[in-house]
Design a protein around this nucleic acid. Structure first.
Lengths: 224, 224
DNA sequence: TCACGAGTATTGTTGAACAATCAAAGCCGA
DNA sequence: TCGGCTTTGATTGTTCAACAATACTCGTGA
Protein backbone atom coordinates (compact mmCIF):
# COMPACT_ATOMS: atom_id res chain seq x y z
CA UNK A 1 0.00 0.00 0.00
CA UNK A 2 1.22 3.46 -0.86
CA UNK A 3 1.88 5.68 2.10
CA UNK A 4 1.48 9.40 2.18
CA UNK A 5 4.07 11.36 0.25
CA UNK A 6 7.50 11.31 1.81
CA UNK A 7 8.55 14.80 2.69
CA UNK A 8 12.11 14.22 1.62
CA UNK A 9 13.32 11.89 -1.08
CA UNK A 10 16.97 12.00 -0.10
CA UNK A 11 16.18 10.66 3.36
CA UNK A 12 15.15 7.07 3.47
CA UNK A 13 12.05 6.09 5.38
CA UNK A 14 14.16 4.39 7.98
CA UNK A 15 16.00 7.61 8.76
CA UNK A 16 12.76 9.53 8.90
CA UNK A 17 11.37 7.05 11.38
CA UNK A 18 14.55 7.23 13.45
CA UNK A 19 14.31 11.00 13.66
CA UNK A 20 10.63 10.86 14.48
CA UNK A 21 11.08 8.46 17.37
CA UNK A 22 14.10 10.41 18.57
CA UNK A 23 12.05 13.56 18.74
CA UNK A 24 9.27 11.81 20.60
CA UNK A 25 11.82 10.50 23.07
CA UNK A 26 13.53 13.81 23.86
CA UNK A 27 10.17 15.55 24.08
CA UNK A 28 9.12 13.10 26.73
CA UNK A 29 6.31 11.45 24.81
CA UNK A 30 7.23 8.11 26.36
CA UNK A 31 7.80 7.31 29.99
CA UNK A 32 11.33 6.24 30.93
CA UNK A 33 11.49 2.49 31.23
CA UNK A 34 8.42 2.03 29.06
CA UNK A 35 8.55 -0.77 26.54
CA UNK A 36 8.27 0.17 22.89
CA UNK A 37 6.35 -2.68 21.32
CA UNK A 38 7.28 -3.39 17.74
CA UNK A 39 3.77 -4.06 16.48
CA UNK A 40 2.25 -1.12 18.31
CA UNK A 41 4.80 1.33 16.89
CA UNK A 42 4.57 -0.25 13.45
CA UNK A 43 0.90 0.48 13.34
CA UNK A 44 1.23 3.94 14.85
CA UNK A 45 3.95 5.01 12.42
CA UNK A 46 2.65 3.08 9.45
CA UNK A 47 5.89 1.25 8.68
CA UNK A 48 6.91 -2.37 8.61
CA UNK A 49 8.64 -4.21 11.40
CA UNK A 50 11.92 -4.43 9.51
CA UNK A 51 12.08 -0.70 8.95
CA UNK A 52 11.22 -0.03 12.57
CA UNK A 53 13.88 -2.45 13.73
CA UNK A 54 16.52 -0.60 11.73
CA UNK A 55 15.50 2.56 13.55
CA UNK A 56 15.68 0.75 16.89
CA UNK A 57 19.26 -0.32 16.18
CA UNK A 58 20.33 3.26 15.58
CA UNK A 59 18.53 4.57 18.65
CA UNK A 60 19.97 1.82 20.80
CA UNK A 61 23.44 2.74 19.55
CA UNK A 62 22.73 6.31 20.58
CA UNK A 63 21.70 5.16 24.02
CA UNK A 64 18.17 6.52 23.91
CA UNK A 65 16.61 3.09 24.05
CA UNK A 66 17.87 -0.11 25.61
CA UNK A 67 17.65 -3.37 23.75
CA UNK A 68 17.11 -6.55 25.75
CA UNK A 69 17.32 -9.64 23.54
CA UNK A 70 14.03 -11.47 23.13
CA UNK A 71 12.35 -9.00 25.46
CA UNK A 72 12.17 -5.86 23.43
CA UNK A 73 13.38 -2.27 23.45
CA UNK A 74 12.72 0.03 26.37
CA UNK A 75 13.07 3.75 26.83
CA UNK A 76 16.36 4.22 28.65
CA UNK A 77 15.87 5.24 32.24
CA UNK A 78 18.94 7.23 33.21
CA UNK A 79 20.04 6.43 36.73
CA UNK A 80 22.14 8.64 39.00
CA UNK A 81 25.26 6.97 37.67
CA UNK A 82 24.42 8.00 34.14
CA UNK A 83 23.56 11.53 35.21
CA UNK A 84 26.83 11.94 37.06
CA UNK A 85 28.78 10.52 34.11
CA UNK A 86 27.04 12.77 31.62
CA UNK A 87 27.79 15.90 33.62
CA UNK A 88 31.39 14.82 34.09
CA UNK A 89 31.59 14.42 30.32
CA UNK A 90 30.00 17.81 29.77
CA UNK A 91 32.58 19.50 31.98
CA UNK A 92 35.31 17.49 30.29
CA UNK A 93 34.23 18.48 26.79
CA UNK A 94 32.53 21.85 27.06
CA UNK A 95 35.06 23.49 29.34
CA UNK A 96 38.00 22.44 27.23
CA UNK A 97 36.26 23.45 24.02
CA UNK A 98 35.50 26.89 25.44
CA UNK A 99 38.93 27.42 26.95
CA UNK A 100 40.71 26.67 23.68
CA UNK A 101 38.26 28.56 21.49
CA UNK A 102 39.27 31.04 18.84
CA UNK A 103 37.44 34.25 19.94
CA UNK A 104 35.91 35.03 16.56
CA UNK A 105 34.89 31.48 15.73
CA UNK A 106 31.67 31.30 13.68
CA UNK A 107 30.05 29.15 16.36
CA UNK A 108 29.97 32.18 18.64
CA UNK A 109 27.21 33.53 16.46
CA UNK A 110 25.27 30.32 17.05
CA UNK A 111 25.75 30.74 20.78
CA UNK A 112 24.30 34.24 20.58
CA UNK A 113 21.38 33.06 18.45
CA UNK A 114 20.63 30.27 20.89
CA UNK A 115 20.48 32.61 23.86
CA UNK A 116 18.28 34.98 21.89
CA UNK A 117 15.98 32.16 20.92
CA UNK A 118 15.78 30.84 24.45
CA UNK A 119 14.81 34.28 25.70
CA UNK A 120 11.95 34.53 23.19
CA UNK A 121 10.64 31.10 24.01
CA UNK A 122 10.78 31.91 27.68
CA UNK A 123 8.48 34.85 27.04
CA UNK A 124 5.96 32.42 25.59
CA UNK A 125 6.51 30.03 28.50
CA UNK A 126 7.30 27.27 26.01
CA UNK A 127 9.66 25.51 28.37
CA UNK A 128 10.33 22.59 26.08
CA UNK A 129 11.60 24.98 23.43
CA UNK A 130 13.62 26.87 26.03
CA UNK A 131 15.30 23.58 26.89
CA UNK A 132 16.00 22.92 23.22
CA UNK A 133 17.54 26.36 22.80
CA UNK A 134 19.68 25.93 25.88
CA UNK A 135 20.92 22.64 24.51
CA UNK A 136 21.74 24.39 21.24
CA UNK A 137 23.82 26.88 23.22
CA UNK A 138 25.93 24.13 24.71
CA UNK A 139 26.13 22.36 21.38
CA UNK A 140 27.54 25.58 19.93
CA UNK A 141 30.16 25.66 22.67
CA UNK A 142 31.32 22.22 21.60
CA UNK A 143 31.25 23.32 17.97
CA UNK A 144 34.06 25.72 18.92
CA UNK A 145 36.33 22.69 18.88
CA UNK A 146 35.73 22.28 15.14
CA UNK A 147 35.06 18.57 15.16
CA UNK A 148 31.91 17.21 13.53
CA UNK A 149 32.51 13.86 15.19
CA UNK A 150 32.64 15.46 18.61
CA UNK A 151 29.53 17.49 17.79
CA UNK A 152 27.61 14.34 16.89
CA UNK A 153 28.75 12.54 20.02
CA UNK A 154 27.87 15.49 22.21
CA UNK A 155 24.39 15.92 20.79
CA UNK A 156 23.86 12.25 21.55
CA UNK A 157 24.88 12.85 25.14
CA UNK A 158 22.54 15.82 25.42
CA UNK A 159 19.66 13.80 24.00
CA UNK A 160 20.25 11.16 26.64
CA UNK A 161 20.28 13.85 29.30
CA UNK A 162 16.94 15.10 28.10
CA UNK A 163 15.52 11.69 28.89
CA UNK A 164 16.49 12.41 32.47
CA UNK A 165 14.85 15.84 32.20
CA UNK A 166 11.65 14.00 31.38
CA UNK A 167 11.62 12.79 34.96
CA UNK A 168 11.15 16.32 36.22
CA UNK A 169 7.74 17.84 36.51
CA UNK A 170 8.69 21.50 36.76
CA UNK A 171 10.13 22.42 33.37
CA UNK A 172 10.25 26.10 34.21
CA UNK A 173 12.61 25.63 37.10
CA UNK A 174 14.62 23.19 34.99
CA UNK A 175 15.26 25.40 31.98
CA UNK A 176 14.31 28.96 32.90
CA UNK A 177 17.24 30.05 35.07
CA UNK A 178 19.86 28.88 32.61
CA UNK A 179 18.93 31.42 29.98
CA UNK A 180 20.54 34.18 32.02
CA UNK A 181 23.44 31.97 33.02
CA UNK A 182 24.22 31.16 29.42
CA UNK A 183 23.99 34.86 28.57
CA UNK A 184 26.51 35.56 31.29
CA UNK A 185 28.92 32.92 30.03
CA UNK A 186 28.64 34.33 26.54
CA UNK A 187 29.15 37.93 27.67
CA UNK A 188 32.19 37.03 29.72
CA UNK A 189 33.67 35.06 26.85
CA UNK A 190 33.05 37.80 24.32
CA UNK A 191 34.50 40.27 26.78
CA UNK A 192 37.77 38.46 26.37
CA UNK A 193 38.04 36.82 29.78
CA UNK A 194 38.00 33.21 28.63
CA UNK A 195 39.22 31.85 31.92
CA UNK A 196 36.38 33.46 33.85
CA UNK A 197 33.86 32.25 31.29
CA UNK A 198 35.07 28.68 31.73
CA UNK A 199 34.81 29.03 35.49
CA UNK A 200 31.23 30.28 35.18
CA UNK A 201 30.35 27.46 32.83
CA UNK A 202 31.78 24.87 35.17
CA UNK A 203 29.89 26.34 38.07
CA UNK A 204 26.60 26.34 36.18
CA UNK A 205 27.06 22.78 35.06
CA UNK A 206 27.68 21.71 38.62
CA UNK A 207 24.51 23.47 39.72
CA UNK A 208 22.49 21.89 36.95
CA UNK A 209 23.82 18.49 37.93
CA UNK A 210 22.64 18.99 41.50
CA UNK A 211 19.19 20.02 40.33
CA UNK A 212 18.78 16.98 38.08
CA UNK A 213 20.11 14.58 40.68
CA UNK A 214 17.78 16.02 43.30
CA UNK A 215 14.88 15.62 40.92
CA UNK A 216 15.83 12.02 40.39
CA UNK A 217 15.87 11.39 44.11
CA UNK A 218 12.44 12.98 44.46
CA UNK A 219 11.17 10.88 41.57
CA UNK A 220 12.29 7.67 43.25
CA UNK A 221 10.87 8.75 46.59
CA UNK A 222 7.46 9.37 45.04
CA UNK A 223 7.19 5.83 43.82
CA UNK A 224 9.00 5.72 40.49
CA UNK B 1 15.63 -19.77 37.42
CA UNK B 2 17.19 -21.11 34.27
CA UNK B 3 20.83 -20.79 33.44
CA UNK B 4 21.66 -19.44 30.03
CA UNK B 5 24.83 -19.42 28.02
CA UNK B 6 25.43 -15.71 27.85
CA UNK B 7 27.79 -15.72 24.90
CA UNK B 8 25.37 -17.36 22.54
CA UNK B 9 21.97 -16.17 23.64
CA UNK B 10 22.66 -12.63 24.72
CA UNK B 11 24.14 -11.69 21.36
CA UNK B 12 21.71 -11.72 18.53
CA UNK B 13 22.79 -12.76 15.08
CA UNK B 14 22.67 -9.17 13.95
CA UNK B 15 25.19 -8.12 16.57
CA UNK B 16 27.42 -11.02 15.69
CA UNK B 17 27.36 -9.99 12.05
CA UNK B 18 28.11 -6.39 13.03
CA UNK B 19 31.16 -7.44 15.01
CA UNK B 20 32.34 -9.72 12.24
CA UNK B 21 32.20 -7.05 9.58
CA UNK B 22 33.77 -4.55 11.95
CA UNK B 23 36.72 -6.83 12.49
CA UNK B 24 37.10 -7.39 8.75
CA UNK B 25 37.08 -3.63 8.26
CA UNK B 26 39.71 -2.73 10.85
CA UNK B 27 41.91 -5.61 9.71
CA UNK B 28 41.87 -4.19 6.24
CA UNK B 29 40.05 -7.04 4.53
CA UNK B 30 38.25 -4.54 2.31
CA UNK B 31 39.72 -1.74 0.26
CA UNK B 32 38.73 1.79 1.32
CA UNK B 33 36.02 3.10 -0.94
CA UNK B 34 34.99 -0.39 -1.98
CA UNK B 35 31.28 -1.03 -2.22
CA UNK B 36 29.84 -3.68 0.08
CA UNK B 37 27.13 -5.29 -1.97
CA UNK B 38 24.20 -6.53 0.04
CA UNK B 39 23.65 -9.72 -1.88
CA UNK B 40 27.34 -10.59 -2.01
CA UNK B 41 27.77 -10.17 1.74
CA UNK B 42 24.51 -11.97 2.46
CA UNK B 43 25.80 -15.01 0.67
CA UNK B 44 29.28 -14.78 2.15
CA UNK B 45 28.02 -14.46 5.73
CA UNK B 46 25.02 -16.69 5.34
CA UNK B 47 22.46 -14.22 6.65
CA UNK B 48 19.43 -12.55 5.17
CA UNK B 49 19.37 -9.08 3.69
CA UNK B 50 17.31 -7.66 6.54
CA UNK B 51 19.78 -8.86 9.15
CA UNK B 52 22.71 -7.54 7.15
CA UNK B 53 21.04 -4.17 6.73
CA UNK B 54 20.63 -3.85 10.49
CA UNK B 55 24.37 -4.40 10.80
CA UNK B 56 25.01 -1.79 8.10
CA UNK B 57 23.01 0.79 10.04
CA UNK B 58 25.15 0.30 13.12
CA UNK B 59 28.41 0.40 11.19
CA UNK B 60 27.33 3.52 9.33
CA UNK B 61 26.52 5.15 12.66
CA UNK B 62 30.03 4.27 13.80
CA UNK B 63 31.48 5.85 10.69
CA UNK B 64 33.21 2.72 9.39
CA UNK B 65 31.01 2.55 6.31
CA UNK B 66 29.26 5.28 4.39
CA UNK B 67 25.68 4.88 3.32
CA UNK B 68 24.61 6.55 0.08
CA UNK B 69 20.85 6.26 -0.44
CA UNK B 70 19.89 4.02 -3.32
CA UNK B 71 23.52 3.46 -4.15
CA UNK B 72 24.75 1.25 -1.36
CA UNK B 73 27.23 1.19 1.48
CA UNK B 74 30.92 1.80 0.89
CA UNK B 75 33.96 1.34 3.08
CA UNK B 76 34.73 4.78 4.43
CA UNK B 77 37.82 6.27 2.81
CA UNK B 78 39.28 8.67 5.37
CA UNK B 79 40.58 11.80 3.69
CA UNK B 80 43.19 14.16 5.10
CA UNK B 81 40.42 16.19 6.71
CA UNK B 82 39.23 13.19 8.68
CA UNK B 83 42.76 12.25 9.68
CA UNK B 84 43.48 15.74 10.96
CA UNK B 85 40.19 15.84 12.84
CA UNK B 86 40.75 12.45 14.43
CA UNK B 87 44.20 13.40 15.68
CA UNK B 88 42.88 16.70 16.98
CA UNK B 89 40.24 14.73 18.86
CA UNK B 90 42.82 12.31 20.19
CA UNK B 91 44.89 15.16 21.60
CA UNK B 92 41.73 16.75 22.98
CA UNK B 93 40.59 13.60 24.74
CA UNK B 94 43.71 11.61 25.57
CA UNK B 95 45.78 14.46 26.87
CA UNK B 96 43.08 15.73 29.16
CA UNK B 97 42.26 12.23 30.38
CA UNK B 98 45.90 11.60 31.22
CA UNK B 99 46.49 14.98 32.83
CA UNK B 100 43.54 14.59 35.18
CA UNK B 101 44.16 10.96 35.98
CA UNK B 102 44.23 9.52 39.43
CA UNK B 103 47.73 7.98 39.67
CA UNK B 104 46.60 4.58 40.97
CA UNK B 105 43.63 4.22 38.68
CA UNK B 106 42.93 0.61 37.70
CA UNK B 107 43.28 1.50 34.02
CA UNK B 108 47.00 2.01 34.58
CA UNK B 109 47.29 -1.74 34.86
CA UNK B 110 45.63 -2.04 31.45
CA UNK B 111 48.13 0.43 30.04
CA UNK B 112 50.96 -1.69 31.33
CA UNK B 113 49.42 -4.88 29.98
CA UNK B 114 48.94 -3.28 26.56
CA UNK B 115 52.59 -2.23 26.31
CA UNK B 116 53.66 -5.69 27.42
CA UNK B 117 51.43 -7.32 24.85
CA UNK B 118 52.62 -5.03 22.08
CA UNK B 119 56.22 -5.90 22.89
CA UNK B 120 55.50 -9.64 22.63
CA UNK B 121 53.69 -9.27 19.34
CA UNK B 122 56.51 -7.20 17.98
CA UNK B 123 58.87 -10.10 18.69
CA UNK B 124 56.68 -12.25 16.46
CA UNK B 125 56.51 -9.51 13.85
CA UNK B 126 52.71 -9.66 14.01
CA UNK B 127 52.28 -6.01 13.15
CA UNK B 128 48.51 -6.11 13.01
CA UNK B 129 48.44 -7.33 16.60
CA UNK B 130 51.04 -4.73 17.58
CA UNK B 131 48.68 -2.10 16.21
CA UNK B 132 45.78 -3.56 18.15
CA UNK B 133 47.81 -3.53 21.36
CA UNK B 134 48.89 0.06 20.79
CA UNK B 135 45.27 1.03 20.31
CA UNK B 136 44.42 -0.75 23.56
CA UNK B 137 47.07 1.38 25.27
CA UNK B 138 45.44 4.58 24.13
CA UNK B 139 42.01 3.20 24.97
CA UNK B 140 43.28 2.59 28.49
CA UNK B 141 44.44 6.20 28.70
CA UNK B 142 40.91 7.33 27.92
CA UNK B 143 39.55 4.85 30.43
CA UNK B 144 41.36 6.94 33.07
CA UNK B 145 38.52 9.44 32.65
CA UNK B 146 36.07 6.86 34.03
CA UNK B 147 33.40 7.31 31.39
CA UNK B 148 32.04 4.27 29.54
CA UNK B 149 30.38 6.59 27.02
CA UNK B 150 33.65 8.31 26.26
CA UNK B 151 35.37 4.93 26.00
CA UNK B 152 32.85 3.74 23.44
CA UNK B 153 33.14 6.92 21.42
CA UNK B 154 36.91 6.79 21.49
CA UNK B 155 37.13 3.18 20.37
CA UNK B 156 34.90 4.18 17.46
CA UNK B 157 37.34 6.93 16.56
CA UNK B 158 40.27 4.55 16.76
CA UNK B 159 38.48 2.03 14.54
CA UNK B 160 37.96 4.72 11.95
CA UNK B 161 41.63 5.63 12.18
CA UNK B 162 42.57 2.04 11.49
CA UNK B 163 40.77 2.33 8.20
CA UNK B 164 43.30 5.01 7.34
CA UNK B 165 46.10 2.70 8.50
CA UNK B 166 44.91 0.25 5.90
CA UNK B 167 46.17 2.67 3.27
CA UNK B 168 49.72 2.14 4.42
CA UNK B 169 51.84 -0.69 3.13
CA UNK B 170 54.56 -0.75 5.75
CA UNK B 171 52.88 -1.89 8.95
CA UNK B 172 56.16 -2.25 10.77
CA UNK B 173 57.04 1.39 10.41
CA UNK B 174 53.47 2.29 11.28
CA UNK B 175 53.18 0.42 14.58
CA UNK B 176 56.66 -0.67 15.64
CA UNK B 177 58.16 2.58 16.93
CA UNK B 178 55.20 3.42 19.12
CA UNK B 179 55.74 0.50 21.46
CA UNK B 180 58.73 2.23 23.00
CA UNK B 181 57.03 5.59 22.92
CA UNK B 182 54.04 4.27 24.81
CA UNK B 183 56.38 2.65 27.30
CA UNK B 184 58.05 6.00 27.83
CA UNK B 185 54.73 7.77 28.39
CA UNK B 186 53.73 5.11 30.91
CA UNK B 187 57.06 5.24 32.77
CA UNK B 188 56.96 9.01 33.00
CA UNK B 189 53.39 8.96 34.24
CA UNK B 190 54.06 6.28 36.83
CA UNK B 191 57.15 8.20 37.87
CA UNK B 192 54.79 10.93 39.01
CA UNK B 193 55.56 13.56 36.39
CA UNK B 194 52.12 13.78 34.83
CA UNK B 195 52.83 17.02 33.03
CA UNK B 196 55.87 15.58 31.24
CA UNK B 197 53.91 12.44 30.34
CA UNK B 198 51.20 14.54 28.72
CA UNK B 199 53.82 16.50 26.79
CA UNK B 200 55.35 13.26 25.53
CA UNK B 201 51.97 11.91 24.54
CA UNK B 202 51.11 15.05 22.65
CA UNK B 203 54.41 14.95 20.83
CA UNK B 204 53.97 11.31 19.84
CA UNK B 205 50.47 11.90 18.60
CA UNK B 206 51.71 14.76 16.46
CA UNK B 207 54.39 12.55 14.99
CA UNK B 208 51.93 9.77 14.27
CA UNK B 209 49.67 12.24 12.54
CA UNK B 210 52.48 13.33 10.26
CA UNK B 211 53.29 9.74 9.37
CA UNK B 212 49.71 8.87 8.50
CA UNK B 213 49.18 12.06 6.52
CA UNK B 214 52.38 11.47 4.58
CA UNK B 215 51.25 7.94 3.81
CA UNK B 216 47.96 9.29 2.52
CA UNK B 217 49.77 11.70 0.22
CA UNK B 218 51.93 8.88 -1.10
CA UNK B 219 48.85 6.74 -1.62
CA UNK B 220 47.19 9.44 -3.71
CA UNK B 221 50.37 10.04 -5.71
CA UNK B 222 50.62 6.37 -6.60
CA UNK B 223 47.25 6.35 -8.26
CA UNK B 224 44.60 6.13 -5.51
C1' DT C 1 2.63 -21.41 49.06
C1' DC C 2 5.44 -23.07 45.72
C1' DA C 3 7.08 -25.63 41.70
C1' DC C 4 6.05 -27.08 37.28
C1' DG C 5 4.38 -27.18 32.70
C1' DA C 6 1.28 -25.90 28.78
C1' DG C 7 -0.18 -22.14 26.12
C1' DT C 8 0.24 -17.48 24.45
C1' DA C 9 2.47 -13.31 23.03
C1' DT C 10 6.54 -11.14 21.46
C1' DT C 11 10.83 -10.94 19.34
C1' DG C 12 14.43 -13.02 15.91
C1' DT C 13 15.23 -14.30 11.28
C1' DT C 14 14.28 -15.65 6.78
C1' DG C 15 12.71 -15.52 1.91
C1' DA C 16 10.11 -13.64 -1.58
C1' DA C 17 7.93 -9.95 -3.81
C1' DC C 18 7.36 -5.40 -5.59
C1' DA C 19 8.57 -0.33 -5.91
C1' DA C 20 12.01 3.25 -6.39
C1' DT C 21 16.18 4.69 -7.94
C1' DC C 22 20.66 4.68 -10.13
C1' DA C 23 24.08 3.45 -13.78
C1' DA C 24 25.31 2.01 -18.01
C1' DA C 25 24.15 0.70 -22.69
C1' DG C 26 21.95 1.84 -26.80
C1' DC C 27 19.48 5.23 -29.92
C1' DC C 28 18.75 9.33 -32.48
C1' DG C 29 19.34 13.80 -34.45
C1' DA C 30 22.36 17.70 -35.39
C1' DT D 1 31.51 12.51 -33.74
C1' DC D 2 29.13 14.43 -30.10
C1' DG D 3 25.56 15.46 -26.79
C1' DG D 4 21.20 14.42 -25.06
C1' DC D 5 17.34 11.13 -24.52
C1' DT D 6 15.27 6.65 -23.68
C1' DT D 7 15.59 2.09 -22.40
C1' DT D 8 17.18 -1.56 -19.82
C1' DG D 9 19.32 -4.04 -16.16
C1' DA D 10 20.92 -4.14 -11.55
C1' DT D 11 20.81 -2.71 -6.82
C1' DT D 12 18.68 -0.80 -3.04
C1' DG D 13 14.25 0.42 -0.26
C1' DT D 14 10.25 -1.45 1.85
C1' DT D 15 6.66 -4.53 2.83
C1' DC D 16 4.56 -8.85 3.88
C1' DA D 17 4.01 -13.45 5.52
C1' DA D 18 5.79 -17.24 7.70
C1' DC D 19 8.29 -19.86 11.04
C1' DA D 20 11.69 -20.43 15.00
C1' DA D 21 13.20 -19.15 19.47
C1' DT D 22 12.48 -17.14 23.66
C1' DA D 23 10.01 -14.88 27.52
C1' DC D 24 5.90 -14.22 30.03
C1' DT D 25 1.25 -15.80 31.98
C1' DC D 26 -1.60 -18.55 34.14
C1' DG D 27 -3.62 -22.75 35.72
C1' DT D 28 -2.76 -27.12 37.94
C1' DG D 29 -1.31 -30.12 41.50
C1' DA D 30 1.22 -31.34 45.59
Amino acid sequence: MKKQALEDRSRSLGETVTSGIRRLLVEGAFAPGQQLSEMALCERLGVSRNTLREAFRTLAHEGLVTHQPHRGVFVTRPGPGSIVEIYRLRRFIECRALSEAWPSHPAVKEMRAAVENARERREQKDWLAVGTANMAFHGAIVALADSPRLDAFFSQILAELRLAFGLMADKEWLHGPYVEMNQQVLDTFEGGDTKAAVALLEQYLAQSERVVLAAWERQVASGG
